[in-house]
């Protein structure tokens, strides 16, 4: 008798997950060790467990470790936000970037910091998450209005809203030169020079977002089909959509707040993850979180060497890669 293939074939899934965790650990260690100056594992060990106040120990604990924690958090958040956006929009070129959600979160942060002097992490998070939520509702609302919710339409609306958001950011910035330089670097997306409190503050938000996303996995599977089919299967459409938007906003907002808008992570990662595990969201979400974390951390390490000894903003790297992938997909008409 032919053995029945159990769809949740767990063995390859587990070995893939282990491989991804090992890779992630390695790139995180590389992110601590490599840069303008290289540190041996022994120096890292001493800096963490036997802090002696030496220059290397200070660099490792105050510069390298915060960004080695921030990068995977942001990558995981954006990777999963990308999966949710693509499923909710039923569109493989949707992502927090192409739907303008990144831009909306960035605008909210810039506006609240310039106009209301918001500087605390908590304040910025609230601004970023609300900005992300308002933008996703605006984009989905406009795309769904005036007849039919089409996949092309939602991206058109998203790109327009995103462009609009960044234009307003530029207007605000040109009238506030004092904060220009600091905000400009933040706006290209970077994990550098963030205090560890960013990672510590952002981690719970990201973890909550990832958990909610994972809990939505089954209805999201069904939502890949059309609305009638999903409703026929018993999916409460409105509840799932609203929870989905909230989760995307939470994840995107938190990552924008921590690192600025790091471009195209949420767009590329789901495509890569689907190649490994297919379309089922339980595995897709976990795999996208891990691949997103690896991708962002690797990009952050590369950013230190591409124009060595200077450092490139990581958002420039992820956007270059992401833009290229988008072009290839569009040419192949996969998207």
């Amino acid at each position: 008798m032919r053995p029945i293939a159990i769809p949740t074939s767990s063995r390859p899934a587990i070995s893939l997950t282990i491989a991804l965790w090992v890779t992630l650990t390695m790139v995180i260690l590389a992110s601590i060790a490599l840069g303008y100056r290289q540190y041996w594992p022994s120096a890292i060990w001493r800096a963490i467990f036997a802090f002696d106040g030496s220059e290397s120990a200070v660099v490792i604990t105050t510069l390298r470790i915060p960004r080695a924690l921030l990068a995977p958090l942001v990558g995981a958040a954006l990777g999963v936000a990308g999966v949710l956006t693509q499923t909710l929009a039923r569109n493989r070129i949707a992502s927090p970037d192409t739907l303008g959600i990144n831009a909306g979160a960035a605008l909210a942060v810039v506006a609240s910091s310039v106009w209301f002097g918001v500087g605390s992490i908590a304040g910025m998070s609230v601004a970023a998450i609300s900005g992300a939520l308002a933008t996703s509702l605006l984009v989905f609302g406009v795309a769904a209005s005036s007849g039919g919710f089409s996949p092309i339409r939602i991206v058109l609306v998203g790109v327009t809203v995103g462009g609009l958001g960044y234009s307003i950011v530029q207007i605000i910035l040109t009238t506030n030169e004092a904060q220009l330089k600091e905000l400009l670097f933040w706006l290209t997306g970077s994990f550098a020079d963030r205090p560890i409190s960013f990672a510590i503050g952002g981690a719970p938000v990201v973890l909550v977002g990832l958990m909610v996303a994972w809990m939505l996995a089954q209805p999201l599977d069904a939502l890949q089909a059309d609305d009638t089919t999903a409703a026929n299967l018993g999916v409460p459409l409105a509840v799932v959509r609203w929870s989905g938007f909230l989760t995307v906003s939470l994840l995107t907002g938190a990552s924008v707040c921590m690192a600025g808008p790091v471009g195209f992570v949420g767009f590329v990662v789901p495509h890569v993850a689907r190649r490994f595990v297919g379309l089922g969201h339980r595995r897709l979400i976990i795999t996208s979180a891990l691949i997103g974390a690896i991708y962002a951390t690797t990009a952050d390490v590369l950013a230190r060497f591409i124009i060595y000894p200077a450092e490139a903003p990581v958002g420039a790297i992820t956007s270059t890669v992401g833009g290229t992938v988008l072009l290839i997909l569009l040419k192949r008409r996969v998207a």
Partner: peptide, 22 residues
């Protein structure tokens, strides 16, 4: 079953049939 149901083109037959178990 709707009149013109739709699902992603890269979904496999088995992934589609699995949705019925939701």
């Amino acid at each position: 079953l709707a009149q013109s149901p739709s699902a992603p083109e890269d979904m496999t037959v088995q992934e589609l049939v699995r949705l019925g178990r939701y």
